[in-house]
Design a protein around this nucleic acid. Structure first.
Lengths: 207, 207
DNA sequence: CCAAAAGTGTTGCACCTACACCCATGT
DNA sequence: ACATGGGTGTAGGTGCAACACTTTTGG
């Protein structure tokens, strides 16, 4: 059981979509980077097991978690193993907060989704499939919220979309689209910064 | 490992979308209807196993086969079992031909997707999820072809869409949509019947 | 006052839907 | 000839992309 975990991490050129990998501590593929994972307990359902193994790597609860695919090719490993793969989103503020209190765990490192190292097994293909699914899903669902704190400005949300999709979006059209849907509710707070303050929104819990 | 198999079978009011169920021959849920399935061989990849277990029920090769979901709830059966579920389409002409040469296998019966009997385990939920996925996918992909012979008229194809989606479509708009895409290639043959002959199309193999 | 981000308005295009209409064939 | 399904044309509506424009803040 493995999980492709996505979060945003700030880089020189704005936020980048990144995912954590772990260095393998045993054969096969000893020393190579791989998706975090673990083994399924007997009395645990699949979603719980995915959340648990994810927490063992990140010490965090995911804001979004979905089954991706089950792989079971015969030549995937020396003997065939079934691998149930999930994908998840982590709020970037929680990842940063976690970083502040605890040292980065040994053997875990975050990589830009556009600059992954060589991966063990068929994990690269799996990561790319998860990325494809995330990009798709961002288009027609509200999951982008899973990468942000509770309240956020429309610009921050747009930047999430841009980081995920890898292309720029028109700010005014983005605003209309999201304001027109009932996915967002405006709050009375504003984010004050260098320029005109921007209204904070939060996702509509019952939409 | 189970598979939700769809095909079209003619009924009084036109073709209906139907799926085969098997009667369970052992406990638990002895005697109840269930999705066809089987066990995974050690040296077999998942797609092959799905095709094999499907063939054991229908004696046919599917024209479309896709993994649906992996279920593993603890309370799904007495002890937790992992169940990898696929869904598939069968060409209706092959199903009918198969019927003609062989008697219907014992314990297998086709049911209208809108009139399923009570099912063993959580198979009803699984069948409905597969149906939802099929209906979705028909909207943005070419899988409807999987239910028809190689060559077909636009009306026949539209009737497939109507049977799958459960609603009527405008013939002229349907024609424009499909002719406009490069999914279909016209042939030089016509289906002659009671009225004006209709051109036969086939799906574009490399679109 | 100026720069820059927040936020509004407007226009044009692409696409879909509904529906009127003509065409070709079997009976 | 006419009923019926095959096939074409067209007008209205919706939604989105592009982009000009106004507003509000910090410096």
């Amino acid at each position: 059981m493995s999980t492709v975990i996505f979060s945003l991490r700030s880089a020189a050129d704005g936020d980048r979509l990144m995912l954590p990998l772990v260095r393998r501590t045993r054969e096969p593929h000893l020393g190579m980077w791989a998706l975090p994972g673990g083994w399924l307990d007997v009395a645990e359902n699949l979603d719980d097991a995915a959340a648990r193994t994810l927490a063992e790597t990140t010490a965090l609860a995911p804001s979004y978690l979905e089954q991706l695919y089950t792989f079971g090719d015969v030549d995937r490993a020396p003997s065939r193993t079934i691998s149930i793969v999930y994908w998840a989103l982590l709020r970037s503020d929680l990842v940063d907060a976690q970083r502040a209190v605890a040292d980065a765990p040994e053997n875990v490192e975050w990589f830009d989704v556009d600059a992954l190292p060589e991966l063990a097994f068929d994990h690269r293909r799996i990561a790319e499939y998860a990325l494809w699914r995330l990009r798709n899903k961002v288009g027609y669902s509200r999951i982008a919220a899973g990468l942000l704190p509770d309240a956020f400005t429309l610009t921050e949300l747009r930047e999430v979309y841009e980081a995920v999709l890898g292309r720029r979006l028109d700010p005014s059209n983005f605003r209309r689209l999201l304001e027109g849907s009932d996915e967002l509710v405006p709050t009375d707070s504003f984010r004050t910064g260098k320029h005109r303050p921007a209204r904070l929104y939060r996702y509509n819990a019952d939409a």
